[in-house]
Write a protein that binds this DNA or RNA. Structure first.
Lengths: 330, 330
DNA sequence: TTGAAAGCGCTAACAC
DNA sequence: GTGTTAGCGCTTTCAA
C-alpha cells in the first residue's frame, strides 16, 4: 500500500499532525523532528494524497480549461501556454473540448466541479450563457480568455480585437489598397470586435465600407467563401482573414484560381499562430500575444483562487503587425 | 454550501447510505424511494464530490496524458482525439507537457499520482526509463502510444513505423526515384522503426543505402539539414521526412534554394497531420491512423483501470499512403 | 428495503 | 513543540 502520514508518523515516532505540519510548513516543529520526518518521507517515497486534502477544503491545484474548437490551432496554443504557466505555478490543467456545444459545456462544467477543479479558463466561443451566469453566481474562480464579457463579472484577458481590426485596415491602407474584403468568423465574441475595428477605419476615411463575408473557422469554408469573393468582377486587391485559419483558406482559394500571392492579391491573417510560418508565402499577420495572454490568465486565476473574489479586471494586450510575404505594396 | 448526500438524505427522509445506493445504482432501493431521491438531487442540483469517493478508493475518472513535444503538432492531435474519446467514456484528461525532460517527467508523474489519476498515456519520446520501471513495478495502469517498449510490460498502441518506412521507400521507388534521402528525427523511439523499414527496402533491392540525416522535430532544424543535403552535387530527387514537421522543413529548404516541388524535387512526409493540407503544394504523406490509435489507447487504458492488470497487448495499426501534390513520377 | 457506523487520508483547532 | 481529536463527503458492511 501507498504510505500515508500515519506510516510516516509511526516510523518517525511522532503524531500524524506533526507530519502534516512539516508537509505544510505550518505550526512550530522542532528542527530535529522535521529533518527526521523529511528523511522518512523521502525513504518511503511518500506522496500526499490530494483527494484527502481537497476533501478537507484545500485547493486541488487544478484548472479546468475549456477548448471550444479544435479546428483553430490558436486554442491549442492557448492551452499549451496555459499549461506551461500552470506547471510553473504548481497547477495542472484539465483540458475539456466542448466543440461549441452548450450541452457539452454544461456536462463538462459539472464534471469539472465534481472533480473540484479550483477554477475555469473560458475561451471566446463559449456558448452557454445560462451556465456562465451560474458560474458567476457561485463565484467560481474563472477568467475569460481571448475575449471580453462585458455583461458578466468575470476577469478577462485578451488581445485587443478592435485595435487588431484597425491595424489590419491601416496596414493595408499603408500598402495602397483600397478595394479590400474581409472574411470573418461567425458566432465568435472576439470576431465582432475585429470586424468593428476594421470597418471603423473605413468610416473614418470616408471610404466605401469593405465587403465582409462570414465563415466558420475552417479552411474549407473560408476557401469556399473566398472563391466566391475572388470571382467577382471588381476583385479586391487585398483580403483580410479574421483569423489565421480563415486566411489560409483565402490563400488556398487564390491558388485555386491561379492568383499568385502577393502579386495578384494580398492576404493577411490575424492571431499569428504557427500556421503563418508554415504556409508559403509566409503569412503577414496581426499578432495577438497568445503566450502573454495565457500566462496572465493563469496568474489572474490563481490569484482569484488564493485570494478569493474577482477583481473584474480587464486586461487588453495590444496586437502588433508581423510582416511576412503575403502582402505587397500596390 | 454545496449540498452533500446528507442534505439529500435529510430532505428525502432517508439515510445517506440509501442516497449513495441510488447514485451508484447499487443495493436494493425501493422504486418510490429512488424516484424521490432522484427528484431531490435534481432540485438541489446535487453533484457528488469526487474527492470523497476517490478517498474511499473509487476511480477518479481522470487520465494523465504526457505530451513530450509541443513543436510537433502530431502530439496535439493525439491529445485531442484522446480527450474526445475519454469524454465519451466519462473520463477527463489531465494534460502534462514534459518537453523531453526526464526531470519534468518525474515531477509531473508524481503530481499526477498524488492527484489520483487512474492511469497514464505515455507518448513516444518519454525519456525517464527509471520512472517507467517504477510505474511498471507499481502496476500503475498505463499505455504507450505511438511507440512500443519491448523492454517493458506496458500495453502499446501505435502505427506500424517499420511498415511506414517501407511504404515510403516503395512509394518513391514506384515513382521511379532511386537517389533518395531521408531526414529523420533524433532521439525518438518511433523514429528508429521508420528508418529501419526505409533502409530495409534499399537493402532488399540491393540499392545503395539512402542518405540519412538527423534533426530535432523542428522546422528550422530540418530546413538547415535539408539545405545542406540539397546543395550536394549529386542532389537526391526525392526526400522523405521522418515526420510531417521535418517534411515541412525540407519543403522550405527547397523553396529557399529555388527548387520547385515536385518538379525539381519530390518530398513526402509521415504522420499526415493537418500540416499536410496547409502547405503548398499539399504534402503527400504516409498516414498514421492517429485518431484510431488515440481511441484504442484510451479504451485499453480504461479496460486496465476497470479490470486491473496489463494485457501486454501490442496493437499495431497499418499506415496508408495519402497522395497529394508534393511528389511526382520521375 | 433501509439505516447505523466505521473509515478512506488529511487538516486544523485546541490541549498539553 | 507536539499530540488529541473531530470531521471533510462518500462508500460499504452488517444489522435491523
Amino acid at each position: 500500500m501507498k504510505p500515508t502520514i500515519y506510516d510516516i508518523a509511526k516510523k518517525a515516532g511522532v503524531s500524524a499532525a506533526t507530519v502534516s505540519n512539516v508537509i505544510n510548513e505550518r505550526g512550530r516543529v522542532g528542527d530535529k523532528t522535521r529533518k527526521k520526518v523529511l528523511a522518512i518521507m523521502d525513504e518511503l517515497q511518500y506522496r500526499p494524497n490530494t483527494a484527502a486534502s481537497v476533501l478537507k477544503g484545500k485547493a486541488a491545484f487544478t484548472i479546468g480549461f475549456f477548448v471550444p474548437d479544435m479546428l483553430n490551432p490558436v486554442y491549442m496554443e492557448y492551452v499549451k501556454h496555459a499549461e506551461e504557466r500552470a506547471q510553473e505555478r504548481g497547477f495542472s490543467i484539465m483540458m475539456c473540448s466542448t466543440e461549441n456545444d452548450p450541452v457539452k459545456e454544461r456536462l463538462q462544467a459539472d464534471v469539472l466541479r465534481q472533480k473540484n477543479v479550483d477554477g475555469f479558463i473560458i475561451t471566446s466561443k463559449f456558448q452557454n450563457e445560462e451556465l456562465l451566469r451560474e458560474i458567476e453566481r457561485e463565484q467560481y474562480p474563472s477568467v475569460c480568455i481571448a475575449h471580453e464579457r462585458p455583461d458578466f463579472q468575470f476577469d478577462s484577458v485578451s488581445g485587443n480585437d478592435w485595435e487588431a481590426g484597425i491595424m489590419a485596415a491601416d496596414y493595408l491602407f499603408s500598402l495602397g489598397h483600397t478595394n479590400i474584403a474581409m472574411i470573418a468568423e461567425k458566432d465568435s465574441v472576439s470576431s465582432y470586435g475585429r470586424i468593428e475595428g476594421f470597418k471603423e477605419r473605413f468610416r473614418k476615411k470616408e471610404m466605401k465600407q469593405p465587403l465582409i463575408r462570414y465563415a466558420e473557422a475552417s479552411i474549407d469554408q473560408a476557401k469556399a467563401m473566398a472563391l466566391n469573393l475572388l470571382k467577382q468582377d471588381d476583385r479586391p486587391t487585398a483580403v483580410f482573414g479574421g483569423n489565421d485559419v480563415l486566411a489560409v483558406g483565402i490563400m488556398q482559394a487564390a491558388r485555386t484560381l491561379g492568383l499568385s500571392i502577393p502579386e495578384d492579391i494580398s492576404v493577411i491573417g490575424l492571431d499569428d499562430t504557427f500556421l503563418c510560418q508554415i504556409v508559403s508565402p509566409q503569412l503577414t499577420a496581426i499578432a495577438m500575444p497568445v503566450k502573454k495572454i495565457s500566462y496572465r490568465a493563469v496568474d489572474l486565476l490563481i490569484e482569484q483562487i488564493e485570494k478569493g473574489g474577482t477583481l473584474k479586471s480587464t486586461d487588453l494586450f495590444p496586437p502588433v503587425v508581423i510582416e511576412r510575404d503575403s502582402a505587397r505594396k500596390l
